[in-house]
Computed example of a mutant assay.
Amino acid sequence: MTQPTLFVELHILQSLPPSNINRDDSGTPKQALYGGARRARVSSQAWKRATRMEFAKAEPPADRATRTKRIAALLAERLAKPAAEGGTGVDAAGADRLAAALLEPLGITKSSKKEEQSAYLLFFGKRQLDSFVTLLDGRAEELLALPETKLKEEVAKLQVVSTLSSGHPAEVALFGRMVADLPSLNVDAAVQVAHALSTHAVRTEFDYYTAVDDENVEDSGAGMIGTVEFSSSTLYRYAVLGVHQLRENLGSAQAVREAAVRFVDAFVRSMPTGHQNSFAHRTLPHLVLVTVRTDQPVNLVSAFEEPVTGHSGLAAESAARLAGELTAVGQTWGSVPVHTLAAYGLEGDKLANAFGPSVAFPALLDGVDTLIGGWLTDACLPQARTEQAGVR
């Protein structure tokens, strides 16, 4: 039986002032050639991290995820805590030895450059470290009394891999995890994020700046001289959330609803922080469009394959282009969203006809929650009927 799918897509138009939020190895704002024109670009990795950081603000510290090469050090630190604080109470050397033994079944090897780090980044929940302590079941001292070979044999009997393969925090469930050496630890991401592109052609500029030495009274020269590259742009941002995948990763319908709504909120409000002190570039979008589909995701970036020229500003023309593309995709391909929600401060009948009336952003979040809640209820009904009938 084919499992039902639900895709919640986010289409965002957002203008940035002079800024350099995501730069390449030479310090230049990232760019891409699209539709024959040079565009401003913000990588998906940069905006996913910004979204994760925004998402984590509302998470209790114990429920957060972390992506690090220092899992061995974090686990050893947890093991060394007194039993009253959730640890085992062993000394630092014993904690290091136990941590190494527990992580060995995961294939986590040490970095060739830094002994205290693993060879690659691992994304996991902080509560999953607590589960490692629980696995020991008060046997820490007993295990440490064993010779190395016997210690590894005993630890191999514990459910180490399954511990890290379950109980994922929302961040891991949303953004996924890939462990090349141990595919059983992989988590399929419920979220896909596109590289943000400017709807128009851009040209990089240079800011020539000087820094004055306040204590210099001998001459009027600058204490430091430099340049920083920047550009300004109206960006089209796109992300899609597979609610069905999020349900598989999290299990609980309530957890899915909460994570989905908070992801929408975090993605809309997030902003990469490159050169933020120099440019104070944080803005809010002109338009947030949510399209809900049950067949397949549709990125509407082709609305801007021909660059917007912006005779009377870029945002309004970009929004009109987006509205036209949404309508054209529906007419040409028959791919019409089952529902749309939009929050925008731009005027125009074309927008209202394509997106529906604008609602306040908090109301948009409530609408997303209601839609997902209804789908989860409907999607679970066939499974519940099948289980009641005894059919597998």
Rank of each mutant, 00 (worst) to 15 (best):
residue 223 G to A: 11
residue 130 D to I: 01
residue 138 G to T: 03
residue 26 S to G: 09
residue 127 R to I: 00
residue 191 V to G: 05
residue 121 L to Y: 13
residue 172 V to P: 12
residue 305 E to A: 08
residue 76 A to E: 06
residue 162 S to W: 09
residue 106 L to G: 07
residue 390 G to D: 04
residue 358 S to M: 03
residue 78 R to I: 02
residue 215 E to A: 13
residue 105 P to S: 11
residue 186 N to G: 05
residue 193 V to T: 02
residue 18 P to V: 04
residue 24 D to Y: 06
residue 194 A to H: 10
residue 289 L to D: 01
residue 387 E to R: 15
residue 85 E to S: 03
residue 109 T to E: 14
residue 320 A to Q: 13
residue 391 V to H: 02
residue 375 W to R: 08
residue 149 T to H: 13
residue 253 A to F: 13
residue 92 A to Q: 15
residue 172 V to T: 11
residue 182 L to P: 07
residue 28 T to P: 00
residue 299 N to F: 01
residue 27 G to D: 05
residue 134 T to Q: 08
residue 9 E to T: 03
residue 3 Q to L: 14
residue 157 K to H: 06
residue 347 E to Q: 14
residue 65 A to H: 12
residue 169 P to G: 05
residue 242 G to Y: 08
residue 327 T to C: 01
residue 236 Y to W: 07
residue 180 A to N: 11
residue 202 V to N: 06
residue 291 T to S: 12
residue 198 S to E: 04
residue 381 L to W: 10
residue 69 K to L: 15
residue 247 R to G: 11
residue 300 L to C: 06
residue 4 P to D: 05
residue 323 A to F: 07
residue 134 T to W: 02
residue 127 R to Q: 14
residue 204 T to C: 09
residue 330 G to I: 00
residue 65 A to L: 10
residue 322 L to A: 04
residue 263 F to N: 09
residue 305 E to S: 01
residue 352 A to E: 00
residue 62 A to N: 10
residue 359 V to W: 00
residue 349 D to H: 11
residue 390 G to Y: 08
residue 181 D to V: 09
residue 244 H to C: 12
residue 363 A to N: 04
residue 8 V to D: 06
residue 388 Q to V: 09
residue 324 G to H: 02
